[in-house]
Write a protein that binds this DNA or RNA. Structure first.
Lengths: 147, 147
DNA sequence: CAGGAATTGGATGTCAAGGTCCATTTCGGA
DNA sequence: TCCGAAATGGACCTTGACATCCAATTCCTG
């Protein structure tokens, strides 16, 4: 559910939003989010292809958000890398083309629809503005067991 | 999202509920649900281990639901094979043990919680009783492209 | 314009999910 | 009691997700 890749992407994007509009290097993001740097670079490439972030090479380069945090939703980030699996037609591949799903798949898709809605309504800015004590990425000086 | 295995399990269980309390063989279920028989047998074994279904070997054997359809929920089936990934502590492995999640992971877990609730409220009987024309498994004589 | 900082792209490795196959065990019926 | 129907368990194969590493490219700065 929500692949590891998406989890990593969300952490990275939250970090970028937290520092917007300044650019951050892959190393800085990797350290802050505890994502393996080599893999993070791939994830970031994916986000760049999807126009979620911009990246600039060379000295002084790094990654920045393509939008301001108040215009970027969780859904956009999720869908950029692994679209929510909405069920649009009978997975059994039978008749019903565009026709409404059988009760089982209707229920499942309803659940995904609710998730999609929740994600579409949440912007990065909202996450950062949350009136809570704990910082968005649980950042802190002490790093414990990664498991 | 919701692995293929879970999708197969749900189809199988719906089929069993539709024929309850009679036993169905793996072959019968495989044909009705369009799930590859060899793999279906593994899925069914998993459901049996989780006490969702009973299975009897030998001639006249087959698989039956362990509960009546009105007492079996989608959530039970899902959790038997791949529990919904509720986020109980900071995935970054930092401090906050049992403490409340950072805003990002709180939002994600909220979405899973909603899904969980929806699944817990839906019984197999409800799915079968749905006032709709299309049968639960989109069953029908004509089999089209599986893709 | 040279050197280092930084992303990019490609090749490669690892592991679990999905899927198949077969020998074995279990059980009903003739 | 014997045969065939049926699930079981284990071995095996394939593919994609996750992850790593390195050479090439880009571009700022002195």
């Amino acid at each position: 559910m929500l692949s590891q890749t998406v989890e990593y992407a969300l952490r990275a994007v939250v970090h970028l939003a937290d520092h917007a509009p300044e650019a951050r290097t892959t190393d800085q993001i990797a350290e802050a989010t505890h994502v393996p740097k080599p893999y993070l670079s791939k994830v970031l490439q994916g986000l760049a292809r999807a126009k979620i972030v911009h990246s600039r090479r060379g000295a002084g380069g790094g990654v920045t958000l393509a939008k301001t945090p108040d215009k970027l939703t969780i859904l956009e980030v999720v869908n950029a890398l692994e679209p929510l699996p909405r069920i649009r037609e009978c997975p059994l591949g039978l008749a019903a083309h565009g026709v409404r799903l059988c009760p089982l798949h209707k229920r499942l898709d309803d659940a995904f629809a609710i998730m999609e809605k929740a994600f579409r309504q949440t912007t990065l800015a909202e996450i950062l503005a949350e009136p809570t004590s704990s910082r968005p990425l649980c950042e802190g000086p002490k790093r414990i067991r990664l498991k």
